[in-house]
Write a protein that binds this DNA or RNA. Structure first.
Lengths: 243, 243
DNA sequence: CGCCAGGTTGATTTCGCTCAAGCAATGTGG
DNA sequence: CCACATTGCTTGAGCGAAATCAACCTGGCG
């Protein structure tokens, strides 16, 4: 999701460096001041819960630094990592808009900085700045688009294909390019979460990982992944059968 | 998704009987007149395409009668039925809002009546009626919620459980209650589409169906399904193993 | 009448899940 | 500081579920 602000370098949220990519860049001076008053910055340690599924809504959150996991639980204790949120993303706005309890949990994956904007403030901002409502609308559209893509992949790809695709997405976000053209990722999530993201057991993920390793597609060492050839990884996506 | 109009029996779209459940019930007199001018009612035969994935947007559509399938294709010709739309639902509004091409196709599943509202009209309505924008927003939230639920089920349930769940949803929409407490559905979709909705091959669906039949959970005859005991069907959802 | 799409069924193979054991890293209380 | 639990990960064995390939049926429809 790439939202570009109409007024670059103006009225952006002061603490965040995301600037033009945040939802707040359309605010005028008074609205910006209101945001500054109602905003509260906080750091979260790895694994900390930002808001929990079932909690009543207390405003919205804006990710400033780090990575946040959006997760859903069921009664049996199963959990699925539905999405990842990055600096510039607003989260928790859905239950704010509907006035219902949170339908998902959000947790810090690694050290994270998040601003909380309380209900009165965000209500005021929405009233004074129609463009903000539009931002949320477009954010929703992006998320729905993302969910539809995921549903389609879930229905058409093999587990190996799904993992390859997920690695490719993670490379785009977290990847570092090496001198020899290979790329490395520091995975933001555990194996179990990788498994839940593609709808497989964690043992299955382990096996696929070791096969990708022996096939030379991707080399795993803890949460470090090295991908010699990204094109080769991409070629794995729609292949039902291996070499 | 149950949206209730603030002004019942007033300013609703004239041809539709959905009245309070449509997105248009908030319009005032002038906006209502604008809608009447820009609206064009049309009947679609079974299987007809309303709009196709890749088409440029030409406004939005409002389902008046029948059932519409929202489908996504890939290059290889695979298709997945992502959602169903019913009278009162507005479709095609996402690509209108983003100004991009349609990311999904919509097709009539059986005889269907749909109103088309052209771009200038819907643009004007949105400008004059902020509540309409809010309607779209809540529609998006509902769809995203639905997609998240689907992703979670896709990751946690067996194919049998997914099919049981899908039948339960369809019973709610299409079911008729018999005298003896059993319920019947006239499936709006083919077996292949049932398969794509739960991410399985159509042969697998055939087998699960015959097993549900012999287990006495649901009896299939063409697109007619009879469910003696809905509770028994619901109990199938989270059961990984059969009796 | 023959064709064809949609559906069923069978045989076989592959994939992925379950159960289970083992291992490394981390943390904890004595 | 060590014994010991805990957590996350890997690996193996066996099994069940589902995909694949294929034959065949059935009801429309030109």
């Amino acid at each position: 999701m790439d939202y570009v602000c109409a007024k670059p370098d103006k009225h952006r949220c002061a603490v965040c460096h995301v600037g033009r990519r945040s939802d707040w860049c359309d605010l005028d001076d008074t609205a910006g001041a209101m945001l500054e008053r109602g905003r509260r910055r906080r750091e979260y340690g790895s694994g900390t819960v930002v808001f929990a599924q079932g909690d009543s809504n207390s405003g919205v959150y804006c990710v400033s630094g780090g990575t946040v996991g959006i997760r859903r639980f069921d009664d049996a204790g199963n959990s699925v990592l539905l999405a990842l949120a990055y600096p510039g993303d607003t989260i928790g706005y859905r239950s704010f808009l509907t006035g219902t309890e949170h339908k998902t949990s959000a947790e810090a994956l690694g050290p994270t900085v998040i601003c909380h904007i309380d209900r009165p403030t965000i209500t005021g901002l929405l009233a004074s700045t129609p463009a903000l409502s539009r931002r949320f609308l477009e954010r929703l559209i992006g998320e729905l688009e993302h969910a539809h893509d995921a549903m389609f992949r879930q229905a058409t790809l093999s587990n190996r294909g799904k993992l390859a695709h997920l690695l490719l997405i993670l490379v785009r976000r977290h990847g570092r390019i090496h001198e020899n053209g290979s790329q490395s990722i520091d995975l933001p999530v555990s194996r179990r979460d990788l498994a839940s993201m593609i709808g497989a057991r964690h043992e299955t993920i382990s096996r696929i990982i070791s096969r990708l390793d022996t096939d030379g597609i991707a080399h795993f060492s803890g949460r470090q992944v090295t991908i010699p050839n990204v094109e080769a990884l991409a070629a794995e996506i729609d292949r039902p059968d291996a070499v």
